[in-house]
């Protein structure tokens, strides 16, 4: 990562005003059902999240970033259409890898919000022509490319969000030391880097060949969470 670091920090910052703060990445449901009770559990939860949803999302973010790189203001019209088509295919493929309708809704809502924020934060000609509510990783990857970032950056950013979201939500959900929560992320950094490199290595694969790691229990909990009466986080 020799260039674009500042852009990546901007995009992956949980404080970027794109509505991410309203979500716990499935942690609330896991705490409520007694599956996460302490920091050790949180570590296992985050490892599971990074290696399943996180790894899949990282691959799609990297692929979306690769699809858009180079398609700037000076791109040929045909080229631009190709990029948009590829993004749409990636989006459909990711839908197919997200069995929970609740999680699909969340991902599209977050993608739409990110795109809306980036239109104001970092305007780019393709933003108006893109589908307005893509899955979050697709929006993230496209947004990364618009900031001049590379596929591995996009993968890193999405993975960072997938673990930092729950880690900052945890103190609102159970008695947890915020330092312990962030130590958990620190301990995962080797794994996260590995997953990001792997995701970037597949950025040019056919969309249908991208990975589809699943966590059926998370899907099930997400469905249940969507209709739960007293939730602090939307997901």
């Amino acid at each position: 990562m020799t260039h674009g670091t500042a852009g990546l920090l901007l995009l992956a910052d949980g404080r970027l005003p794109a509505g991410g703060y309203a979500h716990s990445g499935g942690l609330e449901a896991a705490v409520r059902t007694g599956r996460v009770r302490d920091t050790a559990d949180l570590g296992r939860f985050l490892t599971g999240r990074a290696t399943t949803t996180g790894a899949t999302n990282a691959a799609f973010a990297a692929a979306a970033c690769a699809a858009l790189r180079g398609a700037g203001a000076d791109a040929e019209p045909g080229e631009e259409q190709q990029t948009l088509t590829r993004l749409a295919v990636l989006d459909t493929e990711l839908d197919a890898r997200t069995p929970s309708p609740a999680l699909r809704r969340v991902s599209h809502a977050l993608g739409r919000q990110l795109l809306r924020a980036l239109k104001a934060v970092n305007p780019h000609p393709l933003q108006q022509r893109m589908q307005q509510g893509p899955n979050h990783p697709v929006a993230f990857g496209a947004g990364a490319a618009m900031l001049g970032l590379t596929p591995v950056d996009a993968a890193r950013g999405v993975l960072h969000e997938s673990v930092s979201g729950p880690s900052s939500a945890v103190v609102k959900l159970m008695s947890a030391d915020p330092f312990d929560a962030y130590r958990t992320i620190a301990e995962l950094r080797g794994l996260l880097d590995e997953i990001a490199e792997d995701a970037a290595g597949r950025a040019l694969d056919h969309p249908e060949d991208l990975p589809s790691y699943g966590a059926p229990l998370s899907d099930h909990l997400a469905e249940d969470h969507e209709t739960h009466e007293t939730r602090l986080f939307a997901s």
């Binding site: 404080r15 005003p17 794109a18 509505g19 703060y21 309203a22 979500h23 739409r112 919000q113 809306r116 924020a117 609102k172 602090l232 986080f233 939307a234």
Partner: peptide
């Protein structure tokens, strides 16, 4: 709009959900 645990954030620091 479901704001999660931070109702004030949704009207000041991060208005994106409401704006949409």
């Amino acid at each position: 709009v479901e704001t999660g645990a931070c109702p004030h954030t949704a009207i000041r620091d991060d208005v994106t959900m409401n704006l949409l």
